[in-house]
Design a protein around this nucleic acid. Structure first.
Length: 888
RNA sequence: GCGCGAUUAGCUCAGUGGUAGAGCACAUCCUUCACACGGAUGGGGUCGCAGGUUCGAACCCUGCAUCGCGCACCA
């Protein structure tokens, strides 16, 4: 224990303790422990990721849960790791290679490219892990997993095979969301609708059978009209009845296409006629299926037009081609009008470009264990917090579409399907593929390649990243670990991945482990900037948590963020909150420093409780109350409230009141007994407080506990169990608390008086108390100290000179005699105002009590309360009246 | 279009039927030996609007407005 420097410097302290915890293996979970298990799996950040505030909030919450569980005697596993993030990582490395070597992944070939990605992953993949460590996360790093570890890969493949064998995975020719930049299919969840401002073109097509008659058709996408194979109208639409069955001329390439009737066409929309492009629109595709229309694909995978018959458009980018096509129509006199139009267009989540509906061969999964999953959330077996996400979840579960799980990527788990070489060409382009084909022996589906690999060709595709993430809660654990720690207890994640991840994990849990993967799901707030915008790189409104930690400490960042994070809605981030977090750490530190200045002795034993002054008992009672409140708040996952309560206790109750009240004890070197009992109470309270705060601010609490000698040398605060008993177990502190509260309230009124009369800084004033309770004599020194007075004199016979300021307090009428200083007229005005204010309250109160229906119908205790209040106010009013009278 | 959420002090947020709260910011005072990353005191709100239920509404109900988020549509 050494003398503490004046201000708390988090940086070195945080690094020191994190290293010590690792060294002490404090985070490692022992599956053979006799203690009950508690587990959380981290939502694995992308290997390409860097820490942002969302991660901070998310992981700070998990750390709080993990550390609190340890304090409560659980064997805790917080399992960390990263996600291989197929598209993001592949894109990143491809860009790097293009920049550095001017090569594409195809130039390198699959094998070489994958080598490069692995090398990149080895070099940069753990940046975010280092950042989580900086934040103080108590993950069991010895168990860090990656979604492409060998063991994990085996799990993914096994799952694929199992689902295939159940007939739930199949390959089919379907309309999928195609990303023209990433050149892969996407699941529906990876498509983000965005409002776009574009043009709405109305064209006219001549009716083949009736030259000179035209049918008007509206579209936002004239560039695809070369792929039109029909025009559809609603069968009930009177305007077009007679045209059904006839044909129109498609302008280019010129072709007669049929006019068909289909109920999918909205009569009210546009002209009521729809150009049908089965290759490039989901609805059109379905219409095409119903009417057996040909499918003409006029786009290359990268979004350029593929139409050799229209040389002026062929090879042109889809958006440029849109304008060209419109111009071409105008030239031909086929364009009727062009209007501004705003509609929703689906964007690729990763590449942020409009997706293209595209017909392609993909692997699909019919979701397993759907009913159990829906039921578990519905009936509360799995608890969502906040509860309202349940509804969103249920809605999604009711409208499940098969999951497109194949991606045309190289980085990822490869589809474990092989085709017999001699039939590969046919099989790879077959419109459907399922269990039957396997039984014929033409395809091999398994976790191992076929025994004669030279005769087989593996499927080119890899799997959606989420097809590995959904196994995370169990695929990261070996048998022994699962036995102890599966199912996990809490999952902390953002509501934005409720479908991507949470729902699918529950299904996987039931399907493959026959048990739910977690019991509680806590959805964090989404962090926005002060304008309410989402944090994003483009906007540059996302502060770097590393900078914030350098500036304010990891503890400061954690506390500041947690204190404002509400349950369930978004949070607007303000750096000043983090500053508050740092200030809080500094405040605690200085409270400890103050105690050390009085005596460097270690924590002292508490003297008998009934020998302690009211302030001491009061602060202990408040600590006990805080302990109980936190227990309750943790039970409800009200993290912001917990932070708020701890802040208030330390700053207001402990520092502003208790420490100020006992300053005299600590300064008084003559009376060692008084000093020591105060130190003992401080130590008892502070040591417990630090423990309560530890999950939120692990570093500073560990540091102070060590420095103050609250934790034996060689041990860690983080490993200490929370005390089972309150400090004041079985002791009635109520009378003491009432005294303390009376003194504190009187202090406020007396300080206020001093301020009103401009003597706030003088410490030599004398207060005279009339009608004081007898016990006040024992406490007058403390009251003098708190109120900043030279003397407190009790004198029931005191006759106040005209104009003496007075305050009505719980310990009597307190006069502040300041002869010659008082402006009698000003005092009259002040008193007049006070009387005015109070009179209004009294009138309100009397009116309420005069209301018969209130007295009759309100509960008796409310009426009593009101009566007591009225009596008190009336008393005060009378006193004030007398004082005003005295002035006249 | 359907659903969900939000709307309380200048700002960020608490507050689920009984005298409107915290922190920051602001004003005034204090560089008093824990802390100026501090202390003291104070000003500031007809709780989005309009109805209703109730003795009593920030809180419960209905409608509306504004903002945000899902889902659907999106030719």
């Amino acid at each position: 224990m050494s003398e503490l420097p004046k201000g708390y410097e988090p940086k070195d302290v945080e690094a020191k303790w994190y290293a010590a915890w690792i060294e002490g293996r404090c985070f490692e979970a022992d599956p053979r422990s006799a203690k009950p298990g508690y587990s959380i799996v981290i939502p694995p950040p992308n290997v390409t990721g860097i820490l942002h505030l969302g991660h901070v909030l998310n992981n700070a919450l998990q750390d709080i849960l993990a550390r609190r569980a340890r304090q409560k005697g659980f064997e805790v596993l917080w399992l960390p790791g990263t996600d291989h993030a197929g598209i993001a990582t592949q894109t990143k490395v491809e860009q790097l290679i293009r920049k550095e070597e001017g090569k594409t992944r195809r130039d390198l070939g699959r094998e070489e490219f994958l080598k490069r990605v692995w090398a990149w992953k080895e070099q940069y993949g753990d940046i975010i892990i280092g950042q989580l460590k900086r934040l103080g996360c108590s993950c069991d790093w010895s168990r860090e997993r990656f979604t492409m570890d060998a063991d994990y890969t085996r799990e993914v493949q096994q799952v694929f095979v199992k689902l295939f064998e159940k007939g739930l995975i199949y390959r089919g020719l379907r309309m999928v969301n195609w990303c023209p930049v990433s050149l892969t299919a996407l699941s529906d969840e990876e498509v983000i609708p965005k409002q776009q401002n574009g043009k709405f073109y109305t064209m006219r097509y001549e009716v083949v059978e009736e030259p000179g008659r035209y049918l008007e058709i509206s579209t936002t996408r004239p560039e695809t009209l070369m792929g039109d194979t029909a025009v559809a109208v609603n069968p009930l639409d009177e305007r077009h009845q007679d045209l059904i069955g006839k044909h129109v001329w498609r302008p280019f390439p010129r072709l007669a296409i049929p006019i068909i009737a289909d109920e999918a066409v909205d009569k009210e929309f546009g002209t009521g006629a729809l150009k049908v492009t089965p290759a490039h629109d989901r609805i059109d595709f379905e219409i095409g299926q119903r009417h057996d229309l040909p499918i003409i694909d006029v786009l290359h995978p990268d979004g350029r037009i593929n139409c050799p018959d229209c040389p002026d458009l062929d090879g042109i980018d889809r958006f440029k081609a849109r304008k060209l096509a419109a111009a071409k129509l105008a030239e031909m006199g086929a364009l009727v009008k062009e209007e501004d139009y705003s509609n929703n267009v689906g964007f690729s989540e990763r590449a942020d470009v409009p997706i293209e509906p595209r017909l392609s061969l993909q692997w699909f999964l019919r979701y397993p264990s759907v009913d159990r999953t829906a039921a578990a959330v519905e009936n509360g077996e799995i608890v969502f917090r906040p509860d309202r996400w349940r509804k969103t979840f249920a809605h999604w579960m009711e409208n499940l579409q098969d999951w497109c799980i194949s991606r045309q990527l190289w980085w990822g788990h490869r589809i474990p399907v092989w085709y017999r070489k001699d039939k590969a060409a046919d099989l790879q382009s077959a419109e459907t593929l399922d269990l039957g084909d396997r039984n014929k022996g033409d395809i091999h589906v398994g976790t191992e390649p076929p025994s004669d690999p030279e005769n087989w060709v593996q499927d080119e595709d890899s799997m959606d990243t989420w097809f590995s993430s959904w196994l995370w809660p169990f695929a990261t654990m070996d048998e022994e670990t699962r036995k102890k720690f599966y199912p996990t207890n809490d999952l902390v994640t953002g509501p934005d991945i409720i479908f991507f991840w949470v729902a699918r994990m529950i299904m996987a849990g039931y399907e493959f482990m026959d048990e739910l993967p977690f019991r509680n799901v806590y959805f964090t707030s989404i962090i926005r900037d002060l304008q309410g915008r989402k944090m994003s790189k483009q906007l540059g409104n996302s502060p770097d948590p590393l900078d914030l930690m350098d500036q304010f400490g990891a503890d400061g960042l954690r506390f500041g963020l947690l204190r404002i994070a509400p349950v369930g809605s978004d949070v607007r981030f303000d750096e000043s909150q983090v500053e508050e977090g740092r200030n809080f750490a500094n405040k605690i530190y200085n409270a400890c420093r103050f105690r050390q200045m009085a005596s460097e002795g270690r924590a002292l034993a508490l003297p008998p409780l009934d020998s302690l002054p009211p302030y001491h008992l009061d602060i202990m009672a408040k600590l006990d109350a805080l302990t109980a409140q936190l227990e309750e708040s943790y039970g409800e996952y009200r993290f912001g409230e917990i932070a708020q309560k701890m802040h208030e206790f330390l700053w207001s109750e402990l520092c502003d009141w208790f420490l100020e009240a006992v300053k005299g004890d600590l300064r008084n070197t003559a009376n060692a007994a008084e000093r020591d009992r105060t130190l003992a109470v401080f130590d008892a309270v502070m040591s417990r407080f630090l423990q309560l705060l530890h999950p939120y601010m692990p570093h500073v609490t560990e540091e102070l506990s060590a420095r103050m000698g609250y934790v034996p040398e060689g041990e860690f605060l983080m490993n200490q169990l929370l005390p089972a008993e309150p400090l004041l177990a079985g002791f009635d502190a109520a009378p003491a608390q009432q005294k303390a509260a009376a003194i504190y309230e009187a202090t406020g009124r007396m300080r206020n008086l001093k301020f009103e009369y401009n003597v706030a800084t003088r410490r030599d004033v004398t207060f005279i108390v009339k009608n004081a309770p007898s016990w006040l004599a024992d406490e007058s020194d403390v009251l003098a100290l708190l109120a900043g007075a030279g003397e407190i004199r009790m004198d029931d016979a005191y006759e106040s000179p005209k104009g003496t300021p007075v305050a009505i307090t719980p310990v009597g009428e307190v006069y502040l005699p300041l002869e010659g200083l008082i402006d009698v007229e000003a005092e009259k005005i002040r008193l007049g105002k006070e009387i005015d204010k109070l009179s209004k309250e009294v009138i309100k109160c009397e009116a309420k009590l005069g209301n018969a229906s209130f007295v009759d119908r309100a509960p008796a205790e409310v009426v009593e309360q009101e009566k007591a209040r009225l009596a008190e106010w009336k008393g005060k009013l009378a006193q004030l009246g007398e004082m005003l009278e005295a002035l006249r």
